[in-house]
Design a protein around this nucleic acid. Structure first.
Lengths: 247, 247
DNA sequence: CGAAAAATTGACAGAAGTCAACACACGTGG
DNA sequence: CCACGTGTGTTGACTTCTGTCAATTTTTCG
């Protein structure tokens, strides 16, 4: 089947080994850093900055200084065209690294908004770059993380370019499910942090279509919807939807 | 107006100063490298490998060793889902750097096909990474190039998620025009290297829709179409189309 | 508790996809 | 060099999906 929107997370397989307060620890653990190197990384990283629900972590046009690792919470990132159309480019949860688009111009190119009360670690990029020169695996890791973001975006392009509404929604739910599972949460029952409109913006659909499709899935017995609480009843049915588009 | 699909090119503003045989020169010139550093970079780079029209530079699943700089010609990159749907993720011309998606997994994640007889320079990534550790500006440059790819992809997501057929085609034509102009070619008259189907795949449209829309633009006097030869008659009209979507 | 935001649902309209027929162009080989 | 065949492009008629508009309900939060 079509892998539903590649996962972009950072330490990924290692997230569950989370040991310290900062998600940077997860970022570095799998790198096999020495204690000294770990300290060097830690020293650069702020220890958790709270962002309230609805607040912006950064906005398009602001000067870029740092990447951010989501330590806790949930974010959306979105670009807005000059004529005012918004496109949600991603949803980000614990362990995700965001802001990499800004490296290209030294200005942020999208808005990053907390969808629930959250906490982030700040990674001053210039410092990280310098440190990366001394720690090859760190340098490589950053290349990988950015590359993973590119791969993920290609997955979204595939979704937007080729799938119809039902397939998009199914892929979206499966992707969320998978990402929650990676973090040790239930993969079959979770809370959507975003509105139907934000889902629609991400998937290239109108909010009514999102709502209708969720209702339809519920009628078919694939899922149970209670406002933002989603329960996946028949994941295989969803998977079948995604992989089976009579192209 | 909505910037029509961000440009991803490399040295870009500097392409016209092209001085040597290899597009890597352009890549490095703007970095202010010393002659020694330039030599170090040049030493890593193969001096031009020809790829015939229709041939693959690499294919999804192949192990990753190198990035490629297009020295001459035209490529498309595309991902294919497991159920066989193809999504063209980009068109690449002289000076573009491709293959960055592969860094994430050490395997290529997309196919790269030459749409005309082409020539590429090969950049062994491990070597470049090592050199980047010694030349900070080179390291930073690679981060920038990858970031630019992310920004470009976000632009495509905006296009796929928010625009209708006419807007997509208009944005596409303007983007091509701009990229040809950057390379010193005519911005008002150019040859499409790709089929209607490939354009459609990139823009999330069917080939019939592409064809129809081009015909319509011609009827309206915006462009002149002669098979793959495109002449932009009224760029402002196209720009107006892109920026003016009654959202 | 009440106002504002979010979600659901229905009826209808419009854009793009599908299917099909045909025209054209290119390049391959006679 | 021309002829032919395949791949590419155009156009029309029709269908389908999603968007639009609107009314109503539900939820959230001050």
């Amino acid at each position: 089947m079509l892998s539903p929107i590649p996962v972009r997370e950072i330490g990924l397989k290692h997230l569950r080994q989370a040991c310290s307060s900062c998600s940077l620890r997860e970022l570095c653990l799998p790198l096999g850093l020495s204690p000294d190197e770990m300290h060097a990384v830690d020293a650069l990283v702020s220890q958790g900055k709270p962002i309230k629900r609805g607040e912006a972590l950064y906005r398009a046009g602001e000067p870029f200084r740092s990447l951010f690792a989501v330590r806790l919470g949930f974010f959306k990132t979105s670009v807005v065209s000059e004529d005012g159309r918004e496109q949600v480019t991603g949803f980000h949860m614990t362990g995700d690294l965001i802001g990499m688009d800004a490296v290209s111009t030294d200005f942020h190119t999208c808005d990053s908004i907390a969808l629930e009360d959250s906490e982030v670690c700040e990674l001053p990029f210039a410092d990280m770059e310098e440190l990366a020169r001394k720690i090859p695996s760190l340098q490589h890791h950053f290349y990988k993380v950015m590359s993973r973001e590119i791969v993920r975006d290609h997955g979204v392009m595939l979704l937007l370019g080729n799938m119809k509404a039902e397939e998009r929604i199914a892929a979206f739910l499966l992707n969320l499910s998978q990402r929650f599972a990676l973090r040790g949460y239930s993969s079959s029952s979770f809370h959507l942090r975003m509105t139907r409109e934000e889902i629609g913006s991400y998937l290239g659909l109108k909010l009514e279509t999102v709502s209708r499709t969720l209702s339809k899935f519920q009628d078919q017995g694939f899922i149970k919807v209670q406002n933002r609480l989603i329960e996946l009843i028949d994941q295989d049915a969803l998977r079948h939807l995604v992989s089976n588009c009579p192209g």
